[in-house]
Computed example of a mutant assay.
Amino acid sequence: MKATLERNQSLVLIVDDEAFSRKELRLALEQEGYQVAEAKNGTEAINVFHQLHPDLVLIDALMPHLDGFECCHKLLSLDSNKYIPVLMITALKDQQSIDHAFKAGAADYLIKHIYWPILRQQVRCSIEQSQLQQKLVADNQQLQRLVNVDALTQVANRRRFEEYLLVEWKRQGREQQPISLILCDVDYFKSYNDTYGHLLGDRCLYKIAQAILNVVKRPADLVTRYGGEEFAVILPHTNLEGAAYLAEKICFAVRALAIPHQNSQVSSHVTLSAGLATVIPQSGSNFEEIIAIADKALYQAKAAGRDRFLQNNLLERQSSRNN
């Protein structure tokens, strides 16, 4: 079988250990304009399924080694496959087999010998419903992305920042693990906008956001646009040393962009000031606590001359209070 197929029409995978049954279904489906792939057992079906990603599967329930029930379950076990309809075809008519099929994830249960005009409609409707469902999921994911992503910088927005910080604050509190927060502010950005215009100002913010993303790479970490020319980085399960290392790299990465800023009072290029805080959340505490601490460190970094980061460590204060 070829590794790839032209996908101008929907692709149906036929799984049956009987060659005659496969041939009969293939001819009927090809006459309706479907592309068809075949597998003669459950193991082969799984390989073909992951290789070709069919739009629908017709599978015989009774096959040696890996029967249709177990094969169906394995095919649909991944989230990416769960919307692909599987139609179970069998001579079994008992209630237990029917229940077993639907429990395995089958979209429908067809009794041999099949009346083609009915199967034709079932195949068509199943594929159309699956495609509609997948489009709905994709649209919802895109909508969720639009809700949570800052349109200009393409990093998470303030809404997502607050949602995620709340979740991670509670999680680290339960596990009694540190969470760190880095607040960043572009130095003299108002002056940059006044000098170069808002179009270049927007491009500048986008480049800075992408530079921060290139530094902060763990899946659990979140880079956000906090507001205006401010960015925030949430670092779950990260101690002060780890956060300080990233803050230094972020400041360096922005310098390395070498974006000209002739009216900056600290450099001939755009720079960043950052404040960071590390906290182990305590019972009854609020995530606004870490924001206030990081914001104070950011203020101190600006007061100290900008183009740098400073840190406040609440862990030391928590330890001294506990002692």
Results as ranks from 00 to 15, higher is better:
57 V>D: 04
231 F>Q: 05
200 L>R: 14
139 D>K: 12
313 N>G: 03
58 L>E: 06
227 G>C: 10
111 I>P: 05
240 L>I: 07
107 A>T: 06
276 L>I: 13
81 N>D: 04
201 G>V: 00
263 N>Q: 14
249 K>A: 13
63 M>R: 09
136 L>K: 02
19 A>R: 14
220 A>F: 03
37 A>C: 14
266 V>F: 02
98 I>K: 15
28 A>F: 01
270 V>R: 12
283 S>L: 12
257 L>Q: 02
281 P>L: 02
291 I>R: 08
241 E>A: 06
311 Q>N: 13
106 A>Q: 00
263 N>K: 14
132 L>I: 05
76 L>V: 03
110 L>C: 06
117 P>A: 01
112 K>M: 04
87 L>F: 00
186 V>E: 12
208 I>G: 01
120 R>Q: 08
249 K>D: 06
151 A>F: 10
316 E>W: 12
261 H>P: 13
259 I>M: 14
291 I>L: 15
308 R>V: 00
114 I>P: 03
159 R>C: 06
297 A>T: 08
159 R>G: 10
102 F>H: 10
107 A>F: 03
110 L>G: 03
70 E>S: 13
87 L>H: 04
63 M>A: 06
61 A>I: 07
227 G>H: 06
206 Y>A: 15
231 F>A: 04
200 L>S: 08
211 A>N: 13
110 L>P: 01
235 L>E: 04
233 V>R: 01
105 G>N: 00
266 V>R: 03
280 I>F: 05
268 S>D: 15
105 G>M: 00
188 Y>H: 15
245 Y>F: 08
134 Q>S: 14
293 I>W: 11
87 L>Q: 05
194 D>T: 09
312 N>P: 07
193 N>G: 02
278 T>D: 03
92 L>K: 11
312 N>Y: 14
275 G>S: 11
6 E>I: 15
17 D>T: 02
236 P>D: 05
135 K>Y: 11
277 A>E: 01
178 P>R: 09
296 K>Q: 15
250 I>D: 03
166 L>Q: 15
306 R>W: 08
39 A>I: 04
266 V>D: 11
311 Q>Y: 12
119 L>R: 02
174 R>N: 06
82 K>N: 13
127 I>G: 01
124 R>S: 00
234 I>F: 09
219 P>S: 08
90 T>L: 05
278 T>P: 00
11 L>V: 15
139 D>V: 11
319 S>W: 11
206 Y>D: 13
18 E>H: 12
44 E>S: 11
20 F>P: 00
323 N>T: 11
131 Q>C: 10
48 V>G: 10
297 A>D: 10
148 N>M: 14
114 I>N: 02
222 L>R: 08
39 A>V: 08
119 L>Q: 02
100 H>E: 10
203 R>M: 12
251 C>S: 10
10 S>I: 00
163 E>C: 02
79 D>R: 12
273 S>Y: 08
301 A>I: 13
143 L>V: 08
95 Q>M: 12
1 M>P: 12
122 Q>S: 08
292 A>D: 15
39 A>Q: 07
259 I>K: 13
